[in-house]
């Protein structure tokens, strides 16, 4: 067990990424993720790693592309509007099969919106955001401990599958301080024969997503899809709480899952058999894990700080077996435990 320390989620994420072997960080200021950039500005150079404040979000993600092409563990972080700007670069990374870590400390939109926490970037993170048939491996922490741990583990996942990984957190998880234990796991090392480090004794490597003509590009796309199917098989992560004898399944991730957990306690104290399934990987989504637990369920309730985005994936997983209800707050508003509890009572 590592040392117990107290930091906010953004700083804990930075420390996690460094412990996970981050070689280079490229970022641009945006609230509510600035503590992460500031943490990296101090701690990356101290450990003789690369830190660059980029001139734009667009430049930052393309610097990540460059660092990753050079075989390094590269990352950037931003918040919702900034992540929108990065989408082209993310698509290029997916196309060129470059690993890397992108952190979205979600704030409220659309547009400039507000700096308050939100979960309205689910579609963007999980369904694409950029152009083309690609996926990101999306991790959704629900505590500062998980934020830290996932950051540390994300580079291994990214390198293993040669793809960008996104950590989807939010303003509340980023700003909140909470004790956590420092990650002291082992970093895996991956051979990167494709990396651009100088063509010593070999022909030149090329990193690219351009494939000229359709047949080549379709083959590349099919290979990507095959990789995604493997990830769907291997990498689904989720957590359950009081689900074993539940008749009402709550599905929520991140900040809203924390709130649902306490709401489940309140409901159970009232004799309502409620439980929580918390997706940790938003892609791959725990669809099978949801559908496998429907036999006893009378209803499913999805709770999100959005107008209802993940609920679409929940409905696909439930596939009409039981009614799927939704409760959400929008535009930077965060529901209270009491609100969720009232919703549970209303539908149970």
């Amino acid at each position: 067990m590592g040392k117990r320390v107290l930091m906010n989620g953004n700083e804990a994420l930075g420390e996690g990424a460094i412990r996970g072997g981050c070689d280079c960080y490229f970022g641009y200021p945006i609230t509510p993720q600035n503590e992460l950039t500031a943490y990296m500005a101090v701690n990356m150079p101290q450990r003789e790693k690369v830190f660059v404040q980029a001139e734009s979000e667009v430049a930052a993600i393309n610097m990540v592309y460059g660092g990753a092409a050079a075989g390094k563990r590269a990352m950037t972080s931003s918040s919702s509007p900034g992540i929108s700007l990065k989408q082209e670069g993310i698509s290029y990374m997916a196309g060129a099969q470059l690993p890397g870590l992108i952190v979205n400390v979600q704030r409220a939109g659309p547009g400039l919106g507000d700096i308050q926490p939100s979960q309205a970037d689910y579609f963007q993170a999980v369904k694409g955001g950029g152009h083309g048939d690609y996926r990101l491996l999306v991790l959704a922490p629900a505590s500062v401990q998980e934020t830290h741990d996932f950051a540390a583990q994300s580079f291994d996942l990214a390198d293993k599958y040669r793809m960008p990984v996104m950590i989807l957190t939010d303003g509340r998880l980023g700003q909140m301080m909470e004790p956590f234990e420092l990650w002291e796991g082992k970093i895996e090392t991956f051979d990167k024969p494709w990396a651009l480090i100088g063509a010593k004794g070999r022909s030149g490597n090329a990193i690219h997503s351009y494939w000229g003509q359709a047949p080549g590009l379709e083959i590349v796309n099919l290979a990507l899809q095959e990789k995604y199917r493997l990830i769907e098989k291997e990498e689904v992560r989720f957590d359950t709480y009081k689900l074993d004898d539940a008749e009402l399944m709550l599905v929520a991730y991140g900040t809203s899952a924390r709130l649902c957990r306490e709401a489940v306690d309140l409901a159970c104290a009232d004799g309502i058999k409620a439980g929580l399934l918390r997706p940790i990987t938003l892609w791959p989504f725990p669809s099978r894990e949801i559908s496998a637990r429907l036999a006893r369920m009378k209803k499913v309730l999805t709770v999100e700080m959005s107008a209802g985005q993940m609920v679409e994936d929940v409905r696909l997983a439930v596939n009409g077996a039981v009614p799927v209800e939704f409760y959400g707050r929008l535009g930077g508003a965060v529901m209270t435990v009491r609100e969720i509890y009232e919703k549970i009572k209303a539908i149970a």
Partner: peptide
Amino acid sequence: DLDISESAHGRAPAV
């Protein structure tokens, strides 16, 4: 015949 990376349109300086 070198190690070469493509870059998104205009982003070569960042890469």
